[in-house]
Simulated assay, not measured.
Amino acid sequence: MMESPQHLNLATTPLVRPAQADPPRASGVYSWWLDTARFPTPESAGLADLPAAPRLSHGAEQAELLYVGRARKNLHQRILRQHLRRTRSSALRRTLLAVLLPGDGKWAEGASLDSRRRVVLDADAEDQLTAWMTGHLLLGWVRCPSKDETDALEEGWIKEHQPVLNTDGTTHGRELTERKSRFVEGLSCDA
């Protein structure tokens, strides 16, 4: 029997490498972690000048929390079809670009804005960002029985742990939003 989502401990959720992930086609909350066994600090992974925020360490893995999100309908689709493929529909990918860019300008290559001013990447740049994610991050998730429990768990974990790459619900969200705006300023519009 699944533990009530409100009582789940984020630091003990099982983690997998993104390339081996097979999340369920169900609602739930997911978390992205820096693999600190391979990259002991965010800087060693290329994450430039992250906001000052507390960093939750995983209880069983060598990992540091970066991001928490929700899938109100389908964890499988949200993680594999959006976060690991499409920058346009992934706040995580757009935030990663904004914090990777200051350390390495190559992240702006292949990036542009669509007619709604959303960041899009060409196929090579999407592949490059996906490769970075699968090489540097670990992933965890928990199923939730309803949309309301999914929303409550995500909100609770963000409020409690202040994941460094989350904007909404964090004390450092404004700083990240400004970085994302600076990243977008330098992009052309493919209207």
Score class of each variant (00 low, 15 high):
20 Q>F: 03
168 D>N: 08
14 P>D: 14
47 L>V: 09
84 L>S: 09
24 P>C: 07
28 G>T: 02
53 A>P: 00
165 L>F: 09
127 D>C: 12
26 A>V: 14
87 T>H: 06
39 F>P: 13
146 S>G: 02
42 P>H: 01
140 G>R: 10
131 A>D: 08
132 W>L: 12
166 N>L: 13
129 L>D: 00
185 E>M: 06
45 A>W: 02
21 A>W: 05
183 F>W: 01
163 P>H: 04
124 D>E: 08
190 D>S: 15
96 L>T: 04
171 T>D: 03
180 K>A: 09
136 H>G: 11
143 R>Q: 12
44 S>Q: 12
62 Q>C: 07
11 A>L: 04
165 L>M: 07
145 P>Y: 03
166 N>K: 00
120 V>Y: 02
135 G>H: 03
163 P>S: 04
82 Q>G: 05
79 I>T: 12
151 D>W: 08
155 E>V: 14
83 H>K: 14
59 G>C: 14
57 S>R: 15
91 A>Y: 00
57 S>W: 02
121 L>H: 01
26 A>K: 13
71 A>P: 04
34 L>K: 08
84 L>C: 05
182 R>Q: 14
168 D>F: 06
106 K>V: 07
43 E>C: 06
105 G>E: 12
165 L>H: 01
63 A>M: 06
166 N>E: 02
127 D>G: 15
139 L>K: 04
81 R>T: 04
31 S>Y: 08
132 W>N: 05
30 Y>F: 13
128 Q>S: 15
175 E>Y: 13
69 G>A: 01
18 P>V: 10
174 R>L: 07
132 W>S: 09
142 V>H: 11
186 G>W: 04
167 T>P: 02
182 R>C: 00
163 P>I: 08
158 I>K: 07
185 E>I: 11
33 W>R: 08
151 D>R: 08
187 L>E: 00
143 R>P: 01
50 L>F: 10
63 A>Q: 07
153 L>S: 03
90 S>F: 03
163 P>R: 15
190 D>W: 11
71 A>T: 10
44 S>F: 10
77 Q>G: 08
151 D>I: 14
23 P>L: 10
63 A>P: 14
19 A>S: 11
70 R>A: 07
154 E>T: 08
99 V>R: 15
143 R>D: 04
97 L>D: 02
153 L>T: 15
153 L>P: 00
144 C>A: 13
125 A>P: 00
172 H>K: 00
10 L>I: 15
6 Q>A: 07
42 P>N: 09
114 D>E: 09
134 T>A: 03
112 S>N: 05
105 G>K: 09
153 L>V: 13
102 P>C: 05
149 E>H: 04
62 Q>D: 08
62 Q>M: 12
82 Q>N: 13
154 E>G: 02
144 C>I: 05
173 G>D: 01
157 W>E: 00
112 S>A: 14
95 T>E: 05
90 S>K: 14
26 A>S: 07
157 W>L: 10
51 P>T: 02
154 E>W: 05
82 Q>M: 13
29 V>E: 00
133 M>C: 08
90 S>N: 04
39 F>N: 15
112 S>Y: 12
169 G>A: 13
165 L>W: 03
90 S>P: 11
102 P>G: 14
19 A>F: 05
157 W>P: 06
74 N>Y: 09
159 K>L: 15
130 T>I: 09
46 G>C: 10
63 A>D: 06
145 P>S: 08
